[in-house]
């Protein structure tokens, strides 16, 4: 078995008496899509916050590419190669699509304490941005103000931004949230294209997408991982069915 790229070990987080994250461990291997699913309120968001560094865990470790990053801030983790997208679209609405991505490229290319040259004219950044936009199919929208994109396009832009940070692992927080059926199909195709080149930790509600894409699935319920395994295993698990009972059917 290959060395894990991301390894979460025994994470715990309590809010008052409530264990929101209760001894969670999981791994993401290079080149795999590891999906994290679970009913609403299972603690997915808090877990992601701990992996990305916006919430500090009470106990446990997050190890990325062999380094302990538990104490690193969000920006430092991104610099180390852990990129994320947000559940609620988070782009810079007043920037052009290109500049949104170029900003991310800038973080990976030299110092940003540059004061003299107009950043918009830097070909290195613009080229890197255009490459990322190409990958997600937004190349022809580069000069549009990002706020004017359709919802699905904004989701794709988020992924392009993440790609431009030259990540080794993508943490995608419900990338399909709010997308229409056509957009969903396009986004799934995009994720499939990315799969071989990046390790992906995918948090998603769309079960069809999850079962179509994931190599492995972990199920989170009430702060604990209740099941983890291949798609067939998870589909067959009674525990998972019980956790989801009343919320949504797992498609068989």
């Amino acid at each position: 078995m290959a060395e894990a790229l991301l390894s979460v070990q025994g994470l715990r987080k309590h809010y008052g008496g409530l264990a929101v994250t209760n001894d969670v461990s999981l791994e993401v291997l290079p080149g795999e899509i590891h999906a994290l699913i679970g009913p609403n309120g299972a603690g997915k968001t808090t877990l992601i916050h701990q992996i990305t560094g916006t919430v500090a865990p009470d106990a446990g470790r997050v190890v990325f590419a062999g380094t302990d990053i538990t104490r690193l801030s969000l920006p430092r983790r991104v610099q180390a190669g852990l990129a994320r997208s947000f559940q609620i679209t988070s782009i810079i609405a007043g920037f052009s699509v290109l500049e949104n991505v170029a900003l991310a490229a800038q973080a990976q290319s030299g110092s940003s304490f540059g004061f003299l040259r107009p950043a918009a004219g830097e070909t290195v950044l613009n080229d890197a941005a255009r490459n990322a936009l190409n990958e997600v199919g937004l190349a022809d929208r580069a000069m549009i103000i990002a706020g004017a994109l359709s919802h699905g396009e904004k989701r794709a832009l988020e992924i392009a931004i993440a790609l431009a940070t030259r990540p080794r692992l993508l943490l995608l927080d419900e990338p399909l949230a709010g997308a229409g059926p056509e957009e969903t199909e396009r986004l799934i195709a995009l994720l499939r294209r990315l799969k071989s080149r990046y390790a992906i930790l995918l948090v998603e509600h769309d079960m069809q997408a999850v079962f179509a894409l994931a190599d492995r699935i972990s199920v989170l319920a009430e702060g604990r991982i209740i099941a983890s395994g291949g798609t067939t295993e998870i589909r067959a698990s009674d525990e998972v069915r019980a956790a989801y009972l009343g919320e949504e059917e797992i498609p068989c």
Binding site: S73, P75, S112, F113, I161
Partner: peptide
């Protein structure tokens, strides 16, 4: 000049969406 530079771009971005700026590594 400052606002148009790399430095200014980070500033302008952080004004609009600080979380996004952190999530690309600044």
């Amino acid at each position: 000049m400052l606002l148009a530079s790399r430095f200014g771009r980070v500033l302008r971005a952080a004004r609009e969406n600080p979380l996004r700026v952190q999530a690309v590594g600044f």
